[in-house]
Design a protein around this nucleic acid. Structure first.
Lengths: 93, 93
DNA sequence: GGGTGATATCAACATAGTTCGATGAAAGCA
DNA sequence: TGCTTTCATCGAACTATGTTGATATCACCC
């Protein structure tokens, strides 16, 4: 979850949620350096949130909806549990 | 979202999702120092994810389900959008 | 083949975040 | 009142993470 913490990484995810893009698009849209974008894409890739598709000399990136779904379910469960926890209080010695 | 990135903070949230607890419980359960726990609770409090309820010399903490719900909805929307984005690709000049 | 553009990787630096010990304030109890 | 416990806050040290420029690789086009 920490992946979405960085502002630039969040922006990248937001952009990729709209359409598939190649690295150069992300560089243009965010104004960040190419090496920086490439680094974040690697992190997102290794975490399983995006996939890279080499297309000639460009590389297209897209989000993996399944990974996001998993995250959604996890947070939804946590939220539901938090609701129930409102009625429970561990006594202090 | 970056709040849930730190392992200890995630653990605190996970514990609070089960029941309301005071600071000393969290110290016991996590093994972290009291000042560290207190710091994380402050961050979570300022971000609106927990509320503190002073109870004598103890202070009980509980998650705020509404804040978590908001987060859930946000990620769910992102996920839905990512699904749609699979069909869209921005052309490369 | 030589040149150009797109991307990945690396090491070095800068910044932000976490952890810790010490200290102080407030509540409870003798 | 004096002692103890709980918790918040502060500054310092440490750790993790993001950013950058340089470099390497690969595909494309002439």
């Amino acid at each position: 979850m920490k992946l979405f913490g960085d502002p630039l990484r969040a922006e990248i995810v937001r952009l990729l949620a709209r359409e598939q893009m190649c690295t150069c698009h992300l560089v243009d849209d965010t104004g960040a350096r190419q090496s920086t974008i490439s680094h974040h894409l690697r992190v997102l890739r290794e975490a399983g949130f995006v996939t890279a598709e080499p297309r000639g000399r460009y590389t297209y990136y897209r989000l993996r909806p399944d990974a996001l779904s998993l995250l959604t379910v996890g947070i939804a469960n946590l939220t539901a549990q938090a609701h129930r926890a409102q009625a429970i209080r561990r006594p202090c010695a």
